[in-house]
Simulated assay, not measured.
Amino acid sequence: METILVRDYKKERDVYLDLFSIFYIEYLDRKCFFYTENEVYERRLTLAQLMKELPEPFIQISKTTILNIYMVKEINSSLLNGNLYVTLQNTEELLVSRYFSKALKEKIDQTFRNK
């Protein structure tokens, strides 16, 4: 799967979005919001349903967020509580909860070690 059907409300139509243009996905009010460099799209489904559809570079980093690891520029540790912060290619920062931080580190290490 290289694309996903999402809603573009600016154009008031459904479009196929290239998965690898997605920076991250956020679940809010029973909808998934897909963030690209310049746009936000949405689709009504759960994160669990979406995770079954997404390919390798996507990983859940919190209860409500899925990250495309190819968009990560930098990872920073929090000294206070074990959470991580990732800086994306577009300079946006996301919180990685400590529950998901080990899996993220392993996935990034595995993905980029095999390249």
Results as ranks from 00 to 15, higher is better:
M1H: 10
M1N: 13
E2D: 14
E2P: 03
T3L: 13
T3D: 05
V6Y: 11
V6N: 13
R7D: 15
Y9S: 15
K11V: 05
K11I: 01
E12L: 05
V15L: 07
V15S: 08
Y16E: 14
Y16I: 07
Y16M: 07
Y16N: 11
L17Y: 01
L17Q: 01
D18G: 05
F20E: 12
F20D: 13
F20R: 09
S21R: 14
F23L: 15
Y24R: 03
I25W: 09
I25Q: 00
I25F: 08
Y27F: 13
L28R: 04
D29L: 15
D29N: 14
R30W: 04
K31W: 05
C32R: 07
C32H: 09
F34P: 05
F34A: 02
Y35I: 14
Y35V: 08
T36W: 03
T36C: 03
E37V: 04
E37W: 05
E37P: 00
N38Q: 08
N38C: 09
E39G: 02
E39D: 15
E39V: 02
Y41R: 07
R44S: 05
L45G: 09
T46M: 11
L47P: 02
L47D: 04
A48K: 08
Q49P: 00
L50V: 07
M51P: 06
M51A: 09
M51F: 07
M51L: 10
K52F: 12
E53K: 14
E53T: 08
E53P: 06
L54Q: 02
P55Y: 04
P57G: 10
P57Q: 08
P57S: 09
P57H: 08
F58V: 01
I59L: 15
I59V: 15
Q60A: 14
I61A: 05
I61S: 03
S62W: 04
S62V: 00
S62D: 06
T65S: 14
L67T: 02
L67E: 02
L67D: 01
N68F: 01
I69G: 09
I69W: 11
Y70E: 13
Y70C: 10
M71V: 04
V72F: 05
K73Q: 07
E74G: 04
I75C: 13
I75G: 13
I75D: 12
N76W: 07
N76Q: 06
S77G: 12
S77P: 10
S78L: 08
L79M: 14
N81P: 05
N81H: 03
G82W: 12
G82D: 10
N83P: 06
L84W: 03
L84M: 10
L84C: 03
L84P: 08
L84I: 06
Y85P: 05
Y85V: 11
T87V: 13
T87S: 10
Q89K: 10
T91D: 15
E92N: 07
E92G: 02
E93G: 07
L95H: 02
V96R: 04
S97A: 08
S97F: 10
R98F: 12
Y99P: 00
Y99E: 06
S101K: 03
K102Y: 00
K102D: 06
A103V: 02
L104K: 03
K105P: 08
K107S: 04
I108Y: 08
D109A: 12
D109R: 09
Q110P: 00
T111G: 01
R113F: 13
N114L: 06
N114R: 12
N114W: 01
